[in-house]
Design a binder for these strands. Structure first.
Length: 532
DNA sequence: TGGGCTTGCGCC
DNA sequence: AAAGGGCGCAAGCCCA
């Protein structure tokens, strides 16, 4: 049963489904929530990110919620309107404000109870109410997990991190100074180019310098430089790689983001149009392999690292009802299954071809093998082609559970219409939008599967009565991969949970569709030792 | 000096 | 090897 949590000038009110209200002081909320949690309610509140941290800090964990802000954003996407704002003002702040505290929004949020009523009506009126309700529940469960993972943090050894920085860059330099290894590499580049000073940190100036030295480059991209045969390229590429490590995940990053052996990023559920999460600060979803040796389980604990194998092609197989592709994915390696089906000759062709089909690749190897994939897996390929054509026509597309792509930018529709008097469906802009919608249906539905997986793992792992950090708990989530920090005597149970939750997510979304969602699991001390 | 833009690159 | 989709972030650069 739902319990609405709402802010009142005189405190916080809990509203039961029959409309009865219980008014409590804001500081009594954790105790009240803990007591009612025994009934396994769904807590309905404006914004998990605003309400839940204080509860967690007080040691109170909740099983289920409905996040009005996140669900409104989904509904707004369906309706083609701007999401409501000002939710933050409804948080349990001590001044009782109902307005956004930063003054950015003059529109007061509705009361949580009214917004809940509106959303229930809206969900029920949807053509696929069960799917949309599932999406709302999964999105909200993700919001809980995001706050919990922020609170517990990812185990991070500052000593290991510092050691690997020192090993590759040299000792930590004074603030603003260049590490010894970078200085040496920059000097080596200048020696080998032999044109005097090289502005190695400025891409445009670097391109000009390289051209002065007789190298035919048009950009400073590593991918382009790699194709050039010149002795200065090797130290230059090494410089770029180490410089990136230093600026993005060097000592400054370590100082700013790692405290008490934990990295605590802020996850942003629903932060990407497709429904994927984004992150805010610390680059949490782009942790480079170079620093993963610093992600180390506590003594007596393990990292259980789980990765959904070839998630997106499997999602496409299930979405499109492509039985042949489902068969190809019967085992853990779908790409090998595609080779075994005879569609293509090598695993690399299978992989590049499928990625091209889902991303809209039009050149090179992916385009070459696409016709063969289309013959072998006609429904899968037709599904993404249809999504691309819809986008080119300016139509919006939907994920399985109903998340809807935005309308094309005005520039796209107007620029074309002004020339021909009708919408452009063939120009470069239309094709680019088609690539977006093509990918949206697959990436977005994969994000829904991943949320269902995450929610299942969270629910199955949790043992009530002991603190979250004392039992196996989620510490990291990135699109199709989960890490559980786990006492070593619980790794077997945790692995089983990760696998069974994946199968359950498949059933939740796709029912009895014959598509499997295998998970590769590594049990390691260090993240860098996980296969993947 | 600070904001916004571009470039480049890390991840999935 | 790169290309196609989605991001966040740091640095350089331009302009007010």
């Amino acid at each position: 049963m739902p319990i609405v949590v709402d802010r009142r000038p005189e405190g916080v009110v809990l509203i039961d489904d029959d409309g009865s209200e219980t008014l409590i002081a804001a500081d009594a909320l954790p105790a009240a929530v803990a007591e009612r949690e025994a009934e396994h309610p769904r807590w309905v509140w404006t914004d998990t990110a605003q309400w839940y941290p204080a509860l967690l800090a007080a040691g109170v964990r909740v099983e289920r919620c409905h996040d009005l802000r996140l669900v409104d954003a989904i509904i707004a996407g369906i309706d083609g309107r701007v999401p409501r704002r000002g939710w933050a003002g409804a948080a349990p702040t001590d001044d009782g404000a109902l307005f956004a505290l930063d003054g950015t929004d003059a529109v007061p949020p509705r009361s949580a109870a009214r917004e809940w009523a509106r959303q229930q009506q809206r969900l029920a009126a949807h053509p696929e109410p069960a799917r949309l309700a599932l999406l709302a529940a999964a999105e909200s469960a993700g919001a809980l997990a995001a706050i919990e993972m922020h609170a517990t943090g990812l185990p991070w050894s500052a000593a290991e991190h510092d050691a690997l920085l020192t090993a590759t860059l040299g000792p930590r330099p004074a603030a603003g100074a260049r590490p010894a290894a970078l200085a040496a590499l920059a000097a080596e580049v200048e020696r080998r180019l032999d044109i005097g000073a090289v502005p190695i940190d400025s891409p445009p100036a670097l391109v000009a310098a390289l051209r002065r030295a007789g190298l035919a480059v048009t950009s400073a991209r590593s991918s382009e430089l790699r194709r050039i045969d010149h002795p200065a390229i090797e130290p230059l590429l090494q410089y770029k790689s180490l410089s990136r490590l230093h600026t993005a995940n060097g000592w400054n990053w370590l100082d700013e983001w790692v405290r008490d052996g934990r990295f605590r990023p802020t996850y942003v559920p629903g932060g990407v149009v497709t429904g994927r999460w984004a992150s805010d600060g610390g680059g949490a979803l782009q942790l480079p392999r170079q620093v993963r040796p610093a992600i180390v389980a506590d003594p007596g604990w393990r990292l259980v690292v789980a990765d959904a194998a070839q998630l997106e092609p499997r999602i496409l197989a299930a979405l499109s009802g492509d039985a042949a592709m489902a068969r190809a994915g019967a085992d853990v390696d779908l790409y090998a299954g595609i080779v075994a089906s005879g569609a293509v000759a090598t695993r690399e062709q299978a992989k590049v071809g499928m990625l091209g089909a889902m991303y809209g690749g039009t050149t090179g190897a992916s385009a070459q093998v696409l016709p063969r994939l289309a013959r072998a897996f006609p429904r899968a390929i037709a599904h993404v082609e249809a999504a691309a054509r819809a986008g080119e026509r300016g139509e919006r597309v939907r994920t399985l559970l109903g998340r809807t792509s935005p309308a094309p930018t005005r520039r796209l529709s107007d620029a074309a219409a002004s020339e021909t008097g009708r919408p452009d469906t063939t120009g470069p802009a239309a094709r680019a939008w088609g690539r977006f919608t093509r990918n949206f249906v697959v990436q977005g539905t994969a994000a829904e599967w991943a949320l269902a997986w995450l929610a299942g793992v969270r629910r199955q792992l949790w043992t009530a009565g002991s603190p979250l950090a004392a039992q196996p708990h989620l510490v990291f989530f990135v699109h199709d991969e989960l890490i559980v920090h786990c006492p070593e005597n619980e790794v077997a149970r945790t692995e089983a949970v990760l696998r069974s939750a994946a199968a359950e997510a498949g059933r939740l979304l796709f029912g009895d569709a014959p598509v499997s969602f295998p998970v590769s699991v590594s049990i390691v001390q260090r993240y860098s030792d996980a296969k993947g």
